[in-house]
Design a binder for these strands. Structure first.
Lengths: 208, 208
DNA sequence: CGTTGTGAAGGTCTTCACAGCC
DNA sequence: GGCTGTGAAGACCTTCACAACG
């Protein structure tokens, strides 16, 4: 971990972590070739990526699965149990609220919010839906670190602005819009139609 | 469009298209600076990206919004009205089935499938849920071009294999797993926990 | 032997900077 | 004046290839 970790590497670390969880529980070590095959990347890439972490592989053997898992989790900050807020209790927000994967990686859904007062008080995936009015207060009170925007595009920027005003620095945006945020805020965008359009580009190419 | 378009450029084209749709309807031209600000990229990037398309900007003025929209759509193959199939009528599949954005970009949901026979025959976002048994038949019959995997991780590879067996060459995978596919099949992965983990990496950095 | 760790080579992508044009 | 289009520079990323080592 001498120099800082390249972005491209960071984006692959969760992938490696996932690949480890697929291995047989009895498997003690794992080679870069095996990880590479599972993750769909080149094995030199795996070794170089891992060289940024404090893991030491054993030549002729591979990496210790336990050590690797621990180092990946540590590098990604997964040992800290971050709290997330979901804004938007529509179809997508509901799917997110019901998603079991949060807890598996140490995330806690500490609040689900909607602007529609008729939804407030109902439950979504075991989480009480709260009024959007209380967003800032609860973000601060529950020490929420990550905000998830699952609203229509028209509301997304406003929600992001409120997240930021409440002190949040990490946003995951599912709305089909580009959020304008200050430099010190990280945004990741997850966008269905962008992905579909990239696929159609390739479809068209193949068709010639 | 002399040489082939770089991957990184392709991934930004949908973004530019989206930015155009945000402009006032009366706006006839748009500069690379304006697009760049909306899309959150450098303006030289925008110009270079557009130089791979058959679009001609006017110096001192900018690009014709209409021409640009047309060229972006053409490059992405959005004029062809591709049909998509969604497998998995759980929370996520339901959110997708209800998503109005498909039609807006020329996509048709031509089938929603689930393995749970008690769901078969019900409706999801106006789409009849069909038995997974009929997947291959309907993919062929309706000329489905894109398969969306919205199943649990355990079923994802099997579904992908069946998509491929039915002749499909483009898959959008929402399951938290890396699909193993032949070289001639394109897969895009959309993965909530990967995105969250990338955010926590940065959170941790800032705190460190 | 098999596998790691890494310098060096080779790509790809981004940004700069400015000539060219309306 | 304002903006496009692009060569060149530079940053970043991936892959190769092989020495080092248990």
């Amino acid at each position: 971990m001498k120099t800082s970790i390249p972005k491209a590497t960071i984006a692959r670390l969760p992938l490696y972590l996932r690949c480890l969880s697929v291995l047989a529980p009895a498997q003690m070590t794992c080679s870069s070739d095996e990880l590479a095959a599972n993750a769909g990347v080149n094995s030199a890439q795996v070794r170089k990526d891992l060289s940024y972490l404090d893991v030491s592989g054993v030549r002729g053997v591979g990496y210790s699965v336990i050590e690797l898992r621990h180092q990946l989790s540590t590098a990604l900050g997964l040992n800290q149990g971050y709290a997330v807020a979901i804004v938007g209790a529509g179809n997508l927000g509901t799917a997110l609220g019901n998603y079991g994967g949060f807890a598996a990686w140490g995330f806690t859904v500490a609040g689900v919010f909607d602007i529609d007062e008729t939804k407030v008080g109902t439950e979504v995936g075991g989480h009480l839906v709260r009024s959007l009015v209380d967003l800032e207060q609860i973000v601060r009170q529950r020490n929420i670190a990550i905000g998830i925007v699952a609203t229509p595009a028209t509301a997304a920027q406003q929600v992001a602005d409120r997240f930021i005003a409440a002190g949040l620095r990490s946003i995951l945006n599912f709305a089909p819009t580009v959020l304008q945020v200050p430099d010190n805020v990280s945004v990741r965008r997850v966008d269905l139609s962008t992905e579909l359009q990239i696929l159609t580009f390739h479809l068209q190419q193949d068709a010639g």
